[in-house]
């Protein structure tokens, strides 16, 4: 190991672990301020940068748990999931599961699903651009082939389902809508569609049958299979309406067979 690599290994260990910091003092020029105090500036920078990055991606979690909880919680998270990228945006990937595990079995169990919704929103924001499927592509498919159609989801499409009212919780806490309103956790499950509209990103609540329909298509099932699942959920399910709405929302970017061959 080169001396540069060794020095960096010791520096890294000293930042992660207070007890290793004491052993790193001999590498640092003594000049009035203790090595431990100098290292503390860097440790603070690292933790504050990570906390700010996660607060930007998970503003509802920060607001719901409170800043006093959030900062030490992020330090705990960093211990379990050190950043693996020079792009801080990647840090949030394992955060929803970490939140879910931390609050599992507590009255705040819903926080895991709120975090999952925030991460899904973040993924949709930066997903590849793609031309949405045009409505006339479906209209051009011969009637007999329509039930067998399968759709490719737009890269910016995400579906999130939760037994808690996650969309309501997220909207209130991310966009501070109806600030001060109390949300009853027992108001029930919510299903959310996140979709791209041009370069912009949108989110909306789905009815259970509508969600089941979209989830089946998202998973690659045929239109007929998706219809069967949705109508088992609600006998009044209108497949034409649901499909038109999904196409308008840019949920899909391709279909198969695409009728061009």
């Amino acid at each position: 190991m080169s001396s540069l690599s060794e020095l960096q290994a010791r520096f890294a260990a000293a930042l992660r672990d207070d007890t290793a910091a004491a052993g790193f003092g001999d590498a640092i020029l003594a000049a009035g301020i203790d090595a431990a105090d100098r290292l503390a500036v860097y440790r603070n920078n690292w933790q504050v940068n990570a906390t700010q990055a996660l607060a930007l991606t998970f503003p509802a979690i920060e607001r719901l748990t409170g800043r006093a909880f959030f900062a030490p919680f992020v330090r705990e998270f960093l211990g379990a999931h050190p950043s693996r990228s020079g792009d801080l945006r990647a840090l949030g990937g394992p955060f929803p599961d970490f939140v879910a595990r931390r609050f599992s079995g507590t009255p705040h169990e819903y926080l895991g699903d709120v975090a999952a919704l925030e991460w899904a929103w973040q993924e949709a924001l930066v997903a590849h651009d793609a031309a949405p499927l045009a409505a006339d592509r479906i209209a051009a498919v011969p009637a007999g082939e329509v039930p067998a159609l399968r759709f490719s989801a737009h890269p910016g499409t995400r579906l999130v389902s939760s037994p808690w009212p996650v969309f309501t919780i997220w909207r209130h806490n991310r966009f501070a809508e109806d600030d001060g309103a109390l949300i009853q956790l027992d108001r029930g499950a919510e299903q959310v569609l996140i979709h791209r509209s041009g370069p912009g990103t949108m989110a909306r609540l789905c009815e259970p049958a509508d969600y089941r329909f979209l989830a089946a298509l998202y998973a690659g099932r045929s239109l007929a299979e998706a219809y069967d699942r949705a109508s088992a959920t609600a006998s009044t399910f209108d497949v034409g309406l649901a499909l038109r709405q999904a196409v308008t929302d840019g949920v899909f970017c391709a279909l198969e067979p695409d009728g061009t061959d």
């Binding site: 960096q8 290994a9 890294a12 920078n45 690292w46 950043s83 020079g86």
Partner: peptide
């Protein structure tokens, strides 16, 4: 530098100013 052994600190950490670090 900002990372070691795959772990990132997402910060600008100082280098030792040595001939080895300069060559690197």
């Amino acid at each position: 530098w900002g990372s070691h052994d795959g772990g990132h600190f997402n910060d600008l950490l100082p280098l030792p100013y040595t001939a080895e670090a300069l060559a690197h």
